[in-house]
C-alpha cells in the first residue's frame, strides 16, 4: 500500500468518525462542512416557450437521409444492425404508417408513396411522462419532452405509452455499436430509454436542431409555437397541416405540410 493511499484512508476514516460524532453532538468542532448551494440561481419560466417543428413533406426528398445521418451521428445513436434492438431518434416512415387514421381512399398516389420523417412529437399532453414512475422523462419548461438518463430505471412504460413509437430502449451496451464517437452529446448506457431531444444541447447555444440545419431542401422549420409572429406560426397559419394521431389528444408539437 502506498503512503498516499494510507494517508487518504486515514483521513477518510477520520471524516466518517467526525461525521458520526457531529451527528451525535459529541464534538461539533469536527462537523463536516456542508455543501454550499447558496449561489445556484435563477431558472426559466415554465410554459413561456413551446418549441415546435414543421415538416414540409413536399420538399423532403424520398431518398435523402442527411438529417437522419447527422442527428444519429451527433447524438451518438448506436447502430445494432438488427431491427429488434434498433435505436432511432428520427427516421422515415411510409405515409400510411405515419398517419394510420388519415384518409387514404382515392388519395393522390404521389402522397401515399411519400416517405414521412417521424420523430418524437414533444407532445403538449405527453402520455409517456405520465406513465414514468420516476419522472425520469418529463416535460421541460420549453415544451421539450426530455429524458433524464441518470434516473431512468428501464421499465419501458413510456415505450408502451407512446402512441408514435418514438422511443427506443438500449437492449445492449450502445458504446461498442457507435461507429464514430461524437463529442457533441454524451452516449447512453445499457438499460435506459432514449429518443429525440429536439437538440436541447444546441438550443442552449442558440443553434437550430441538427436535422433542421442539415436539411439541404430547407424542408424543416423550427421555432416557438407560443410566439404568434414566429416563422413556424406564420407557415402553420398559411398552410394546411397535419399532426400525427390528433384524435388521441396528445397535442403533438411536430406538424406536417402534405
Amino acid at each position: 500500500m502506498s503512503q498516499n493511499r494510507r494517508e487518504f484512508l486515514k483521513k477518510a476514516g477520520l471524516g466518517a468518525l467526525a461525521g458520526l460524532g457531529a451527528a451525535a453532538g459529541l464534538f461539533p468542532a469536527f462537523a463536516l462542512e456542508q455543501t454550499d448551494m447558496s449561489n445556484f440561481t435563477d431558472k426559466p419560466v415554465p410554459g413561456k416557450v413551446r418549441w415546435g417543428m414543421l415538416i414540409d413533406t413536399r420538399k423532403c426528398l424520398g431518398n435523402c437521409t442527411e438529417c437522419i445521418v447527422r442527428c444519429h451521428h451527433d447524438h451518438n445513436v448506436p447502430d445494432f444492425g438488427k431491427s429488434k434492438n434498433e435505436v432511432k431518434w428520427i427516421w422515415k416512415s411510409g405515409y400510411e404508417n405515419a398517419f394510420p387514421t388519415a384518409s387514404t381512399q382515392f388519395q393522390n398516389p404521389e402522397v401515399l408513396e411519400r416517405q414521412v420523417l417521424t420523430l418524437c412529437n414533444h407532445c403538449a399532453e405527453p402520455p409517456c411522462t405520465k406513465a414514468c414512475p420516476t419522472e425520469a422523462t418529463f416535460k421541460r419548461w420549453d415544451g421539450i419532452v426530455s429524458i433524464d438518463y441518470h434516473r431512468c430505471i428501464g421499465c419501458r412504460f413510456c415505450m408502451a405509452a407512446c402512441p408514435y413509437g418514438s422511443r427506443s430502449f438500449n437492449w445492449l451496451d450502445p458504446r461498442p455499436n457507435i461507429k464514430e464517437l461524437s463529442t457533441a452529446y454524451p452516449t447512453r448506457m445499457r438499460g435506459v430509454v432514449e429518443k429525440c431531444n429536439f437538440c436541447s444541447e444546441r438550443l442552449v447555444k442558440n443553434e437550430l436542431p441538427a436535422c433542421v440545419e442539415s436539411c439541404p431542401e430547407k424542408a424543416l422549420i423550427f421555432g416557438d409555437l407560443n410566439k404568434p409572429d414566429s416563422e413556424i406560426r406564420k407557415l402553420l397559419a398559411a398552410n394546411e397541416t397535419m399532426q400525427r394521431k390528433p384524435e388521441l389528444g396528445t397535442l403533438p408539437s411536430v406538424f406536417y405540410i402534405i
Partner: peptide
C-alpha cells in the same frame, strides 16, 4: 443486457 431476451423495440 435485456437484448438476450426476445423483446425488442
Amino acid at each position: 443486457g435485456l437484448g438476450v431476451t426476445g423483446m425488442g423495440r
